[in-house]
Computed example of a mutant assay.
Amino acid sequence: MLDLTDEQRAFVSAVADFCRREVGTGPRGAHDPELYRKVAALGWLSVAIAEEHGGAGGGMLDSCLFLEATAHGQLPIGGFNTSIIVAGAYERFGSPEQRRTVLGGIGAGDVWSIAMSEPEAGSDIAALACWAEPRDGGFVVNGQKTWCSNAHIAEGILLVARTSGAPGEHAGMTMLQVPADHPGLRISGIDTMGGREVNDLYFTDCFLPADAVVGTVDHGWKQLMAGLNVERLILAAIMLGTAQRAFDDVLGYIKQRRQFGRPIGSFQVLRHRIADLATEIECTRLLVYRTAELVDRDPGTVLPRETSMVKLKATETARRVALDAMQMMGGYGYATEYGMERLVRSTVVSTVYGGTSEIQREIIGKTYGL
């Protein structure tokens, strides 16, 4: 185990206890607003927000501890995942007023979403074409965003739109703050295997005032790059907790399930599979928290190799654990009664969102001069 402080150990224990009391061992959907407000009241949603903005002043390691514990406990607070990414952008680039209202709101339980991907701009964000035209002292937005997690439950959306240049150029992007109920914005849920957790956003002559800009006009790409450490570590910590949940559930199952007169976990083929999965999870945990410590040591340094490695390793490991667990559970792994099928769905898609595994490998390769 990592060398955590007594305060960090107590924090993890408190979060785990809360999850057991409020959720037990069964999932309760992606996001429960009532539970989310309870978590906010405990101050946990602002664990990594600076003290001057009303937060606890913790670092990336503290965020990862919280995310792993809540993912393992299956606490239905999916809105936090995008909110903490947005919080990082506002801390780095927001105006004093934006920081006060947005960061304070997130700590109190507001959900925020971020809109980057488009139908023709997924892995290649430079290809985005949603246009925010300067007009009448503000911006008029037209275009479509897609795969926007939590937009349907959000108070606001951090939009990345093009304000100059042409699709394919990194220059000319701008971050803009958009209230979720703003005129000219329509949010439409996308049906997926996990339900309606992601959305299409349609902007039609959506006027935003000049103070909607977050950071600097036309510098959105640099601002996005500054947040990569946080985004990839968030996803990695969530999948680490999810992998541990799948492992713990299947371990309990194979200890109890009997075939041929004995527990199926006593057969070598399953013992060895469990040994392999346990080793992979522990390797992932060390990588996640080592990377978080590197980020905390120098928050201003972008770590493309390390954060791509951690996102790749954590999501691929979680997917392997969940799929192997389903196989070991047989038909029960496919039944909604046991919950493993939900873990399979959430881990399979994790290798796609936030930068696919293929993109992470490309980035890692390029850091070696290839």
Rank of each mutant, 00 (worst) to 15 (best):
D3R: 13
Q8N: 07
R9P: 04
V12I: 10
D17G: 09
D17F: 02
F18D: 03
F18T: 08
E22G: 00
T25V: 14
R37W: 00
A41F: 02
S46E: 09
I49M: 09
A50C: 05
E51R: 15
G57M: 12
G57D: 11
G57C: 07
M60E: 15
M60L: 15
C64F: 05
E68F: 01
A71G: 04
I77E: 11
G78A: 03
F80G: 09
T82H: 11
I85M: 10
I85D: 10
G88V: 05
F93N: 01
S95F: 13
E97V: 08
M116A: 12
M116V: 15
M116E: 10
S123M: 09
D124L: 08
A126F: 06
A127S: 13
D136K: 10
V140I: 15
G143V: 00
Q144S: 11
C148R: 04
S149R: 09
L159R: 00
T163A: 11
S164H: 09
E169T: 08
E169K: 09
G172P: 06
M173D: 05
T174D: 07
T174W: 06
A180M: 07
I187G: 08
I190W: 00
I190D: 02
D191K: 10
G194E: 15
G194Y: 00
N199Q: 05
D200T: 08
L201Q: 02
L201C: 01
Y202L: 12
T204Q: 13
C206N: 06
L208G: 06
D211F: 06
A212L: 11
A212D: 08
H219C: 11
G220Q: 06
Q223W: 04
A226K: 13
A226R: 12
A226W: 08
E231V: 14
R232Y: 06
I234D: 03
I234P: 00
A237L: 08
I238H: 04
M239L: 11
M239G: 01
T242A: 10
A243D: 08
F247K: 02
D248V: 02
Y253E: 09
I254T: 15
I254P: 02
R257D: 03
Q259K: 14
L270D: 08
R273H: 05
I274Q: 14
A278L: 15
L294V: 09
T301V: 14
V302S: 13
L303T: 01
M309V: 02
K313H: 14
T315Y: 02
T315P: 10
T315R: 03
V321A: 03
A325G: 09
Q327M: 14
M328N: 03
M329T: 03
Y332K: 13
G339L: 01
M340R: 00
R342V: 07
S346T: 02
Q360E: 12
L370A: 13
